[in-house]
């Protein structure tokens, strides 16, 4: 099969290229190329998609996204997203990890039905999740609100439009959505631990928490890394759920960075009040290039640790 590469491209390579090219061309132009064509836009004054009078402005956009009026919406959005990320990461463990650990202790014949139900919210659209949250907890018509009021558990209705409520409720609800997804990742890690290791620790008299700390967590390292990267990237890219809560219209509590970028790029067509398309792209890259680097480093780190 091995051919001399100096003789030119081998038949085998031609077949490889024929099979790869349809998808890799699409993939490259719709995933990698966008980063490349973003570069000239960042240094330009492009107002909108239909703006044909584009000039080079150097680092102007990096200054303008950090100065008024744009900074007044950019910095709060970054803060909001950062808080969301921290709380969202907490839910990965509060929901995903606890459920996986409990599921691990359950007899396998009981696992399936519970697993299916816990996984179910992940099937629903993010938009639907946001709309469900509003449906359950809006002040006057929220179903859970009305139920709790009727049962006398709460005196005053919970108002999801209240910033301090939505700061907590939004990540909690998203944690519920991803509970099954994260549980599956962690359970996969748990189930790949050799049973002998666990038996040995039992014989040595290690209690549950010792086992957790010295066996489960270290052996689950790869799963924890994957869940971390997915949560990190997902938190800064959160969009659908926020739109379901009305982020594109009136609800300012869920106006995350991604929403701001979308609004700048697609709804405010060259509106001086909101900002330019170039500024939106600059914002997106300022926030996401560091994330990409962190994501790549984390996945590489995980691979090194594995071997």
């Amino acid at each position: 099969m091995k051919r001399n590469h100096k003789m030119g491209i081998s038949r085998d390579t031609l077949w490889d290229a024929a099979f790869l090219s349809p998808q890799i061309i699409l993939y490259f132009s719709l995933t990698i190329l966008p980063f490349i064509i973003a570069v000239p836009i960042i240094f330009s004054d492009q107002l909108s998609f239909i703006d044909n009078d584009v000039h080079f402005v150097g680092l102007q956009n990096f200054v303008s996204i950090f100065s008024p009026p744009l900074v007044n919406s950019f910095i709060p959005a970054i803060k909001r997203t950062a808080i969301f990320m921290v709380l969202n990461y907490a839910t990965v463990f509060i929901f995903g990890m606890s459920l996986a650990l409990l599921m691990y202790e359950t007899k396998s014949k009981y696992r399936k039905p519970f697993f299916s139900i816990i996984y179910l919210p992940y099937m629903i659209s993010g938009l639907g999740i946001g709309m469900l949250l509003s449906m359950l907890f809006s002040r006057d018509t929220g179903s859970i609100n009305l139920l709790l009021l009727k049962l006398g558990i709460i005196k005053n209705a919970i108002d999801i439009k209240n910033p301090s409520v939505s700061t907590w409720a939004f990540p909690a609800f998203i944690g519920w959505r991803y509970a099954g997804f994260n549980m599956a990742i962690f359970l996969g890690g748990l189930l790949s631990i050799p049973p002998e290791t666990i038996d040995a620790s039992r014989v040595d008299g290690a209690n549950y928490f010792q086992r957790l700390w010295h066996i489960y967590f270290p052996q689950m390292f790869a799963s924890i890394m994957i869940a971390t990267v997915i949560c990190l990237i997902g938190s800064w890219g959160v969009f659908d759920e926020a739109v379901g809560m009305g982020a594109l219209t009136a609800n300012k509590n869920v106006r995350f960075v991604s929403i701001l970028i979308f609004k700048l790029g697609f709804s405010g067509v060259g509106d001086a009040q909101t900002g330019t398309l170039a500024e939106a792209v600059t914002m997106s890259m300022v926030v996401n290039i560091p994330l990409l680097v962190i994501g790549i480093l984390l996945t590489r780190f995980q691979k090194k640790k594995q071997y």
């Binding site: 719709l30 966008p34 890219g237 969009f239 996401n288 990409l292």
Partner: peptide
């Protein structure tokens, strides 16, 4: 082959909303 594979794996850490404006320029 493993480079191409790695390129595809990159998609996992790129949220759609990050690249949506350039993608719209390319496609739209």
């Amino acid at each position: 082959h493993s480079w191409i594979y790695a390129l595809y794996m990159l998609q996992m850490i790129i949220s759609p909303v990050v690249i949506i404006i350039p993608v719209y320029i390319i496609l739209g």
